[in-house]
Amino acid sequence: MKSQLNSYLYALHSLSIPLGKEDLLTRNFLIEKTGDIEMYYAPHNEYINKEAKVVLAGITPGWTQMKAAYEEVLRGVEKKHSNDQILCDAKQAAGFSGTIRKNLTDMLDQCGLPETLGIESSLSLFQQYRPLLHTTSIIKYPVFISGKNYTGHHPAIDHSPLLSRYAYQEFAKELEHIGSKALVIPLGKTAEKVCRILLETENPPGHYFLFGFPHPSGANGHRLKQFHQNKEEMENIIKDWGSRVF
């Protein structure tokens, strides 16, 4: 996949840390607008870790992740890093950053993922074991509805040609770039629905899917209930995946 970063470097040179919405949610970084839906460029979901064993797939990057990615890019540009290095660093800085990461890794720990991978904790996937992990979203670029983070509901992905194209075409292409037998974990029911449809129609090559995992956002009030309802089944899927892959 060809990087889009070069197209935005000129606009980036006028920015400085810390960044606000008035800096990034502008025409300079707007990819497409249709009705109340606005999609903006953000660099952190361009980099693909083709050797990943675990793929975490959210709905779309939120403002927190977008801001973290751009600030990391500015640091990389200042240090004259290569585009590949900049994109990799942006991915590491922004992938499920903030409190969402703690909720996510706590649940992964309880499902037994570290034991299957032979690592000490799921948090270490974001640290020293980062080569095992690929973080992404079914809609790779940040989407805002009337300036607010898109949550996957209004409108439904299937009701928007723009969102459907990214979910069912671009995301499917991304999975094809990752080596077979990765454990793909869609976060929440919206991401899970997309993955189930892809399995029915595209059949992503050789990957395993962990269904039933709740979206780890603190705003998801049903997170813990859903997790405990599905925990035993998810543990078994992870164990089965591990026995076939390692």
Rank of each mutant, 00 (worst) to 15 (best):
M66P: 00
L9W: 01
I100E: 13
H13R: 15
A52P: 03
P142I: 02
I119Y: 08
P205C: 06
S7V: 00
P61E: 05
K193Q: 13
A93K: 15
A172W: 12
G212Q: 02
S137A: 14
H153M: 08
E235A: 09
I48S: 00
P61W: 05
I100D: 11
P186G: 00
T136C: 10
K193D: 05
G20V: 09
S16Q: 15
M234W: 04
E72T: 09
K2N: 14
E176S: 12
G206C: 02
L108Q: 06
E22A: 14
P61D: 01
L117P: 03
S137D: 05
R75N: 12
F29A: 05
K53W: 14
D84F: 10
K239G: 13
R101N: 15
L56M: 02
N149Y: 07
S243L: 12
G206E: 02
G20F: 08
P205H: 11
H13F: 13
W63V: 03
N6G: 12
Q4H: 08
E192K: 09
T135V: 15
C88D: 05
L199N: 12
V77G: 00
G179H: 13
L133I: 07
H134V: 00
I59L: 12
F171E: 03
T135R: 10
P205E: 09
G118I: 05
H81C: 09
P186I: 04
T64W: 06
C111D: 03
R196A: 07
Y166L: 14
G152R: 07
P161V: 14
N220V: 03
D89N: 15
V194T: 10
R244F: 07
Q127T: 03
K33I: 00
V77R: 09
W63A: 01
L210D: 01
S124N: 09
N203V: 09
E51S: 13
H153L: 11
L108E: 02
G112Y: 05
Q128L: 08
Y166M: 13
K181Y: 10
N149L: 05
L108V: 01
L162S: 03
G242P: 07
A156V: 01
E192R: 10
F227T: 00
Y8V: 05
I17G: 06
N45Q: 06
G188T: 06
L175P: 00
L162W: 01
L133Y: 08
T190P: 00
L133R: 07
T116G: 04
F213A: 08
S3I: 07
Q127Y: 11
K239M: 10
T136E: 01
A94I: 01
A69E: 06
G62R: 09
Q127S: 11
R101E: 12
Y141S: 04
S14K: 15
G212K: 04
L25I: 06
G98C: 06
F227P: 02
S3L: 07
R244K: 15
E115K: 15
R244S: 08
E233Q: 13
